[in-house]
């Protein structure tokens, strides 16, 4: 309770404009390879769904190509969203917090202060290994939706980032 008062004394009124601003320019883009990884992943799904739709097209009363056309239209939209959405993804490391943003149709940006990080984790799935990519997960005590996952990093970079965040957050533990 006492330190509350102290803060109040140290911080009289705060000018909004003098606060550190999290601007778009602070954000780092993800590795371009990550886009190719996403596209490869989507393509694998596409291939499977296309096969199924082709079989169902041949066996049903429809023309053989009709389901395939529907599926292809949907997937071309997904490709477009992946392509455009990649530009929106990015992360920012500042002195006191780490942030991640993403989403073309549903944009969201989350910041986790280092003094609230519970633990961090590097993970890499088999597909990402092909591209030498990995992701850093930052966990807080606020539940799954308040955690952030920084994907699309080179695996060495991911480890470096994890160490960096761990080092900065351990000051507060």
């Amino acid at each position: 309770m006492q330190s509350d008062l102290k803060i109040k004394f140290d911080n009289p009124t705060i000018e909004m404009s003098s606060l550190p601003q999290l601007e778009v320019a602070n954000f780092q883009k993800l590795e371009k390879d990550y886009l190719w990884l996403r596209i490869l992943f989507t393509s694998i799904i596409f291939l499977i769904v296309a096969c199924v739709s082709l079989i169902s097209g041949i066996t049903s009363d429809l023309e053989w190509w009709q389901p395939l056309v529907v599926v292809s239209t949907i997937f071309s939209l997904i490709y477009l969203l992946e392509w455009k959405g990649f530009e929106k993804k990015g992360y920012a490391i500042r002195q006191n917090d780490v942030s991640f943003k993403s989403g073309l149709l549903f944009f969201s940006m989350t910041s986790v202060p280092f003094n609230r990080v519970q633990h961090t984790e590097v993970s890499q799935n088999p597909l990402a290994r092909l591209f030498d990519l990995g992701e850093v997960k930052v966990f807080t005590a606020g539940g799954a939706s308040s955690d952030i996952t920084i994907s699309g990093l080179k695996i060495d970079e991911a480890h470096r980032l994890k160490d960096h965040i761990t080092k900065l957050s351990s000051k507060y533990a």
Binding site: L105, F106, F107, M109, T110, V112, T140, G142, S146
Partner: peptide, 9 residues
């Protein structure tokens, strides 16, 4: 613990 801003199209 953290703050999120959300904005759809």
């Amino acid at each position: 613990q953290s703050v999120t801003m959300r904005q759809n199209v």
